[in-house]
Amino acid sequence: MITEDADADLRRLAADPRFPHGDAARRAIRFRARGSVADLVAIADDPHPCGMTEIVFALAGTARPWLNWVPMPAEAITGAADRVASRRAKGEAVHVSRSRLSQAEPATAMIAARRLLGPFELEIAAFPEPDLRRPLRRGRYAVWRYDGEWPVPVAPAPPEAAVRVLHEVAEETWPSMLSGYLQAAPLGALSLGDLLGLLGHLPEPPATPRWQNLARSRPTYWYRLMQPWVCLGLLRHAEHEPWATSTRREVLVDLAFGVEDWVSDAALFALVTAAYREPAVRPEVRRLVRARLDAGRAARRAGRNVTIGRSLAELMLVTPGRTALDRIAARRFGRLS
């Protein structure tokens, strides 16, 4: 029986001589103790995969960023929006007409704040170089363009049917990225335009008790959570196409290296998920994650705030094939102990 204590469950499975995946359980224990991504990859590569190996993989990643949950927003503007929403939920009549940021923050964070607070005037004191409004690489696909200081979605708004699919799939975080990939199949059946529209138009959360409760404390988290789910849908889009020349690969890479945003690490997360599923793509994905991490490091060295920095670092740490130097760079950049 699986309980809510992942470490105890793994020790029990590893000690059970009748359990056919004892080596996977032992590797999961080592991963949780040491963080060696090779152990996590070995679980995904079990020569006799079954539902139980997925459970062991999920236990290994329990309570770990990206493996089991999406990092919380780290922006000043979303923190302010959450505080105002919390006060309003308590019955306070709080109105925001003006706010100020010392530096620009990611597009999704700004739109999520406006969605919660209503129209307000925002003064952004600086757009330090490298300007986060400029894509790191020019590609065919994008979620945002900028009209001066404010981001504008590139794709049209998605239809209600697409929003319903998102609500059905994305109400919760995933037990693991592997199970998240499976759960995202209905999103993968949507059109590419609808998926890009979901990323930029930020549909409201589902009307469930979980999100009604979070609306009283951290309502911006829905917008943080939904984009990785949509990117898993992008990973499942047109899966018949060979990976190297596929639309899904091109879109995810373009988004990962587009304007700096929550979409960036959401797209990278989908690529890392692909790497766990497909050994052949691991070298490329590792290079992509490291390149995006290095771009963030360069921006910070130039004096610009990188609010997704810790999240990028956490992704690097769980990327198949990451090296010892990758680990050092990620921990320093993410300021991880």
Score class of each variant (00 low, 15 high):
71 P>K: 07
71 P>Q: 10
71 P>G: 06
72 M>R: 14
72 M>W: 14
72 M>V: 15
73 P>W: 14
74 A>N: 11
76 A>R: 02
76 A>N: 06
80 A>D: 06
80 A>Y: 05
81 A>S: 12
81 A>K: 06
82 D>Y: 07
83 R>P: 02
84 V>R: 00
84 V>Y: 00
84 V>H: 04
85 A>D: 13
85 A>Y: 12
86 S>R: 05
86 S>P: 00
87 R>K: 08
89 A>G: 14
89 A>P: 00
90 K>N: 11
93 A>L: 04
93 A>N: 09
94 V>I: 14
96 V>I: 15
96 V>C: 03
97 S>P: 06
98 R>N: 04
101 L>H: 05
101 L>A: 04
102 S>F: 01
102 S>A: 08
102 S>G: 11
103 Q>P: 02
105 E>N: 08
108 T>S: 10
110 M>P: 01
111 I>M: 12
112 A>P: 06
113 A>N: 02
114 R>I: 15
115 R>G: 07
116 L>Y: 10
116 L>N: 03
117 L>K: 13
119 P>R: 15
122 L>Q: 06
122 L>I: 12
124 I>S: 03
126 A>G: 00
127 F>W: 15
128 P>M: 07
128 P>T: 11
128 P>G: 05
128 P>N: 02
129 E>H: 08
133 R>V: 10
134 R>F: 02
135 P>F: 12
138 R>V: 07
139 G>L: 12
139 G>P: 08
141 Y>P: 00
143 V>Q: 06
143 V>T: 05
146 Y>H: 10
148 G>T: 10
150 W>K: 05
150 W>G: 03
151 P>D: 09
152 V>A: 11
153 P>C: 12
154 V>I: 05
155 A>Q: 01
157 A>F: 00
157 A>L: 02
157 A>P: 01
158 P>T: 14
160 E>S: 04
161 A>W: 06
163 V>C: 02
164 R>V: 07
165 V>Y: 04
165 V>I: 12
165 V>P: 03
167 H>K: 09
167 H>G: 03
167 H>N: 04
168 E>Y: 01
169 V>E: 07
171 E>V: 09
171 E>T: 11
173 T>W: 00
175 P>V: 11
177 M>L: 15
177 M>H: 05
178 L>I: 14
178 L>H: 10
179 S>V: 13
179 S>D: 05
181 Y>W: 12
182 L>A: 14
183 Q>Y: 01
184 A>L: 02
185 A>I: 03
187 L>P: 05
189 A>T: 09
189 A>V: 08
191 S>A: 15
192 L>S: 13
